[in-house]
Amino acid sequence: MTTITLVQGDITRESADAIVNAANSSLLGGGGVDGAIHRRGGPAILAECRSLRAGHLGKGLPTGEAVATTAGDLDARWVIHTVGPVYSTTEDRSGLLASCYRESLRVADELGARTVAFPAVSTGVYRWPLDDAARIALDTVRTTPTSVTEARFVLFDERAYEAFSSRAG
């Protein structure tokens, strides 16, 4: 059974087997969590991302999918990159958001990771409402069969922490 824990803080300061990156499809870094992970993790992460782009991910990582690289200088063995959907008021993309968490857990299982630190995927520049994102994230992690023993949601600010906390029960 997977234990779900919530912490407020900086995901790049966490110690876990794998840290999930809310990446963009290019895998080449960006803003928010993605930029922070690349900055703190150092050039090894970007080098592996470039290698993936030169190989089977030439067009980038599709939304809802996940792939792993080294964690570089982070206190983890791997970074699992997942591309969240941009929130839409006219199209239900919640299945894609759930897929980010399911696919990240699948990759974690393939790697043998037992502790995984997740950000609140798609809640930054992709504008997913926090309450809905928390519901999708927590429900998906609770119901996805996995060998991960701890799924830790690392929430950047008090607003995100409260949104997840009110749903964590």
Rank of each mutant, 00 (worst) to 15 (best):
G31W: 01
R152Q: 02
D10Y: 10
A18Q: 04
E65G: 14
L27M: 14
S122Y: 02
H38V: 03
A23T: 02
V154W: 00
L46R: 11
R114F: 12
D132T: 13
G9L: 13
H56I: 06
P85S: 02
V79Q: 04
S147Q: 13
S122W: 01
T123C: 07
F118G: 07
S51C: 09
T149Q: 11
V20I: 15
V67L: 08
G58A: 06
A98I: 03
F118I: 10
D109T: 13
S99D: 12
G64F: 09
P145E: 13
L105T: 07
A47P: 06
V141I: 09
T69Y: 06
E65A: 15
A22K: 05
S88R: 12
P129R: 11
L96R: 06
G95S: 14
T5D: 11
I37G: 03
G112H: 08
D92M: 08
V67N: 03
G41S: 02
F164A: 03
S99Y: 02
P85A: 00
V121H: 07
G42C: 09
S166E: 14
R142G: 10
R93T: 02
L130Q: 12
L155I: 14
R127Q: 13
L155A: 10
V148N: 00
S94I: 01
E103D: 07
G30I: 06
L74Y: 12
P43I: 14
G41V: 04
L61R: 01
I4N: 02
R93D: 06
Y87G: 11
A133I: 09
D10V: 02
V154N: 03
E48P: 00
D10E: 08
A137H: 05
D131F: 00
